[in-house]
Every structure is written in structure tokens, then in C-alpha cells.
Design a protein around this nucleic acid. Structure first.
Lengths: 221, 221
DNA sequence: AGTAAGTGGAGAATTAACTTCCATTTCCCC
DNA sequence: GGGGAAATGGAAGTTAATTCTCCACTTACT
């Protein structure tokens, strides 16, 4: 009995390490494009590796998702904290939304994680605990300074994020950055008072959004 | 060769008519609750009818969906037209959104139809052609009267409708009417100018929205 | 060179939906 | 009220997608 810790009794063989990394790279790509619904077979193919290899390294999808997205989730917390520390509370609030949404719209897998995919339950539970109080702070500061409407609560931010990030993924590929247009409208609805509309991101591609959604579903003869 | 028209050569038998109606009633209910993804088996069960009966009456899902939702779709057009004819152009615009969204949020199947489910392609194609110009009118009138921000285009309305109606269905059962809160925020973002935030529908249940979304997906041990 | 570790990919197991078949029941008209 | 056409139910065939396992073979390490 010469093993020390319960996990990773011995170091992985060199080729196994290489394959593990190929898998992670491939999974990052595939999940980003197609969301967490992507199959493990698909990822194994993209990694140029047999399925069994993937299953040996990661017992199930949850484990793979956790390994991949733990970083991104911590990044969220970091963003929120940095936003809270910005001088202008409104700028901080807006910057947080922009950064968070940009990531979620570009990476459909990340969006699924944040919105609460069953494959990322525990990983998000702890992250939420860390992020929520910071967002509450962001909100309260912007409210105290008279920028943000007083009736906004933390849950609203989650819901609005969810609504806006539904324009990520495939839609964002048809109409890149369209989500910014609607974030703009919503921000105009969140400020306490306003003389004129702020300038919006252009709507180009907007007409195609619904078509883009069709395309994403199966063709259906 | 004594038949007259190509369809409905002879009248249906009395029991067949009764069953057809049971199917339509059941389908209306099931689609409203679970969206167009509900299976035909499920509907047959709810109608207390064998699957075969359903298939004999409606060759495929598209036919059933068309039979069920043609009315609702025409209702949309009627609502849009009535909104256009209202005295106050802003009230008309808001009223149209409220009515349209209320229907979509209460009836998940209807939402799927409007957002462009593959099972309702043709049925929507013609309806769109009828509704879009009316909505453009609604927009232009509200803009001309100085209520609605000038940079809003027709496609925006579809996108916003889609975003808001994502709070229908199961979410609306957890937190009934929550969608009105976010419609309120967005409307505040759509007016040209505003001194103070308008009053929002309460957020009660809002914290549970994301949980409601989980619940809707399979439990996943 | 020997052996433990690692691999691939076919295929078993599962789940789920759509659709058809046909022996039986029900209605309609005479 | 009886004969024949119409309608029925639900079991079973079909197709498809996904997860996960097995084992004969290959590769790395000492």
C-alpha cells in the first residue's frame, strides 16, 4: 500500500495526459457551439479519441462539465467583484452585465451552466452563493446613487440575464452582438430617469432571428 | 363514382365526430400545458381515445396543430388591428403587447406556434404576412406621436415578444404574471423620455424562476 | 522485453417518438 | 333488429438518439 491520496493513486501515463487535454479542448469547443446538450460521442469524435477514453477519464457528463466550466464560473465572480469596486456604480452595474452576457452569448455551454442545466447543478450552487451577494451590492450601490430604479431586486438580474442570453448561441452567429441592442433597451428601462433614448447597437440580422431559431431545430420534412 | 368533393366524401359517423371533438379538446389542453413537443400518444390518452383514432383524423402533428391554432392566430391579427384603431397610439401599442403576450404566456403551445415551431410553419407564414404590416403601423403611429423611440423596428417587437414569452408556460405557473414585470421594464426602455420609472408588477416568485426551469427539464439523478 | 496502463469502436441497453395493422366494436340505414 | 361499412384500441414494428460497457489490441514505462 504505497498510495498516498484516495484519488490519482499514480500519475497518468504520458499519452493519457495528452488525450485528456485533447478531450478538454474538444469539449470546450463543442459545448461552446452546441450547448451542454452535445453528446459525449460528439466530443470524443472531435477530440479524435474513442468514447471509452472519454468515459474512463470523466465518469459522466457532470464531471466533464465541472472540469471545464469551474474556471469560467470563478471568472464570473471575479467580474462581479471588479464591477463592485468600480468608481461609478452605474458603470459598474452596466459593465458587469456586458461582460457576463458577452461570455454567455458567445459560449452556449456557459449559458446553459448559468441558466441551470441539470449537468451543472452543484457547480452552480456554490458559485451562486458567492456571486449573489456581490450582485446585490452592485444593485444597492447603483440605487443609492440614484441611477438604478429602486424597485429592482437581485432576482430580476438573473431573469433579465436569462432573457437576453437567449439571443446567444446560434442567434448570435446569425446576428453577432444583437443581444447588445436589447440590453440597451432594457438598461434604458432600468435607469431612474432619462431625457432621451440611448444609442442602440444596430438591428442588422434582427429579422432573421426567428429563422435562426428554426434552423437550430431539426429540419422537419 | 358518386363523391362530390375530394375531401370529406361522406359525413363522419356520429361517434367519429364526438371523438374528433374529444381529441381537439384534449389537444388544446395538453399543448397549452406542455407546448407543441407533447406527443400524440399523450394527447390520445388525454382524449381517452386510441392513438390510431387520432392518426385517422389528423394525418400528422402539423394538421392537428393547424386545426387547433388557426383561430388563435387570426385572433392575433384581430388584436393588432384593433390596437391600431385605438385613439391613443401608445396605449394601442402597449395594449397589443399585453394581449399578445398574455395569450402566449398562458398557452405554451401558442407560444411555440408564434415563435416558429416546425409544426406550424405554413400556418404562421400567412399569418405573419397579415400581422407584420399592422404592427409596423402601430410602431410608426406611436413614433409619430412622440411616444415610442424612433430607432425601434418591426423585428424588434418579434424579438422582444420572444424574450418575454420565455417567461410563459411553466415559469408562468410558478410565478403567474411575472412576465408583466419585465414587459414593464422594457416598455420603460421603449418610451422616448421619462421622468420616473413606472410601477412594475410585483416580483413574487421571481427568485424561483430558474428553479422552475430546472424542474421543467428531466430530474437527472 | 515484459507488464500494467491505456485505447478504440462496435454494440448492448435504454428511452422515446411516430406510425401501422387487424381483430373487434359501434353506428347507420333499410 | 340485422347486415355491412365505418370506426376503434392498443399492441407491435420502425426509426433514432444517447448513454455506457466490453474486450481484443496497442502503447508507454522501467
Amino acid at each position: 500500500m504505497k498510495c498516498v491520496s484516495s484519488a490519482s493513486l499514480r500519475p497518468l501515463r504520458a499519452d493519457a495526459v495528452r488525450n485528456r487535454e485533447k478531450i478538454l479542448r474538444a469539449a470546450a469547443w463543442v459545448f461552446a457551439q452546441r450547448g451542454l446538450d452535445a453528446t459525449l460521442d460528439e466530443i470524443a469524435d472531435a477530440a479524435e479519441v474513442g468514447v471509452a477514453t472519454l468515459y474512463r477519464r470523466f465518469p459522466d457528463k457532470d464531471a466533464l462539465v465541472a472540469a471545464l466550466f469551474e474556471n469560467s464560473i470563478n471568472e464570473f465572480a471575479a467580474i462581479a467583484e471588479r464591477a463592485r469596486d468600480m468608481h461609478d456604480s452605474w458603470e459598474g452595474f452596466v459593465w458587469f452585465l456586458e461582460e457576463a452576457l458577452d461570455r454567455q452569448c458567445v459560449n452556449r455551454g456557459l449559458r446553459d451552466v448559468v441558466v441551470g442545466s441539470p449537468y451543472a447543478q452543484e457547480i452552480m450552487a456554490s458559485a451562486k452563493a458567492r456571486i449573489v451577494p456581490v450582485v446585490m451590492d452592485l444593485i444597492q450601490r447603483a440605487q443609492r446613487d440614484g441611477y438604478l430604479r429602486a424597485d429592482l431586486v437581485e432576482a430580476d438580474v438573473s431573469v433579465l440575464e436569462m432573457m437576453i442570453s437567449s439571443l446567444g448561441g446560434e442567434v448570435n452567429q446569425f446576428a453577432p452582438g444583437l443581444w447588445r441592442r436589447y440590453l440597451g433597451i432594457i438598461l434604458d428601462g432600468l435607469v431612474v430617469q432619462r431625457e432621451a433614448p440611448s444609442e442602440l447597437a444596430p438591428s442588422q440580422g434582427g429579422e432573421l432571428v426567428l429563422n435562426a431559431l428554426h434552423a437550430s431545430k431539426h429540419a422537419h420534412a
